[in-house]
Amino acid sequence: MDNATCYIFGAGEFEPCPIELTSRDLVIAADGGYDYLVEMGLRADIVLGDFDSITSFDVWDDTNCEKLTYPPEKDDTDMLLAIKLGISRGYENFAIYGGLGGRMDHSISNIQALTYIARQGVKGVLYHHNHAMTVINNSSYIIPKETKGYVSIFSLSDVSENVTIKGLKYDIYGENITNDFPIGTSNEAIGKKGFISVGNGTLLIMWQIDSEE
């Protein structure tokens, strides 16, 4: 769905930040992520999960949104359920908040969820305090020239082949990166548009953002 974003809010660490929604955007709260929407005064179009971490039940009954209940014993995490739902409804751009911090296993599972997004041929960015991350698979990504600070690139596949990085402090052209040698740690933005691509493989890209964005 062009020019529309699926926003997903999880129950991890999250600092309220300005988010401007349009009528075409879809807002999904993955269980306790609903509390963040209440705190920020944002609408929830869908709330899903087993509802074991929501605390804002004082406004729950007054919320005019779709509620999808799942059992605690399931293969998909609440976050992955939300992602799959967004994809099934035609969304190709995902912005995820509250997906990191707290339990380490949840943070790792949400990074894996970014890999799932990339391998479905759509785009997703996971935001946390003053940094963001995305995963690309056999594709490319642009780091805006306004970016400041560190930009790190890691291979999530055994080998990511034909990796090119341009417009950052350290450039490479057509090199291979492996998942047992973190050579892409702490590259730096230099006021230029950064271009990162991988011909065959999966890359995790992390960069710093303004905490007030």
Rank of each mutant, 00 (worst) to 15 (best):
P72E: 07
P72Y: 05
E73W: 02
E73F: 12
D75M: 10
D75C: 09
D76S: 14
D76I: 02
D76M: 11
T77N: 04
T77E: 03
T77L: 02
D78C: 07
D78H: 06
D78T: 10
M79P: 04
M79K: 10
L80Q: 15
L80Y: 10
L80E: 15
L80K: 14
L81C: 12
L81T: 01
A82T: 11
I83K: 01
K84H: 13
K84Y: 08
K84T: 01
L85F: 07
L85M: 15
G86W: 04
G86P: 03
G86D: 07
I87M: 14
I87L: 14
S88C: 06
S88M: 04
S88K: 13
S88N: 12
S88R: 12
R89I: 04
R89C: 09
Y91R: 09
E92C: 11
N93S: 13
N93F: 05
N93Y: 09
N93V: 08
N93P: 09
F94E: 10
A95Q: 13
I96T: 01
I96R: 00
I96Y: 06
Y97P: 00
Y97R: 07
Y97K: 05
G98K: 10
G98V: 12
G99Y: 00
G99F: 01
L100S: 05
L100P: 05
G102E: 01
G102F: 04
R103Y: 07
M104C: 11
D105Q: 09
D105C: 03
D105F: 03
H106L: 07
H106D: 12
S107M: 04
I108T: 13
I108N: 01
I108Q: 11
S109H: 07
S109G: 14
I111V: 15
I111N: 05
I111W: 11
Q112L: 12
Q112F: 12
A113P: 02
A113H: 05
L114S: 07
T115C: 12
T115K: 13
Y116R: 06
I117Y: 07
R119V: 03
Q120P: 07
Q120T: 08
G121E: 06
V122E: 05
V122D: 00
V122I: 15
K123R: 15
K123E: 10
K123Q: 13
G124Y: 00
G124T: 09
V125A: 06
V125Y: 00
L126W: 00
L126A: 06
Y127L: 00
Y127I: 05
H128G: 00
H128D: 12
H131N: 15
H131F: 15
H131S: 12
A132G: 12
M133C: 15
M133W: 03
M133V: 02
M133F: 07
M133G: 10
T134G: 08
T134H: 04
V135I: 15
V135F: 03
I136G: 04
I136H: 00
I136R: 06
N138H: 14
S139V: 06
S139L: 03
S140Y: 13
S140Q: 13
S140V: 03
S140R: 14
S140L: 08
Y141V: 12
Y141I: 09
Y141H: 14
Y141A: 11
I142R: 14
I142N: 13
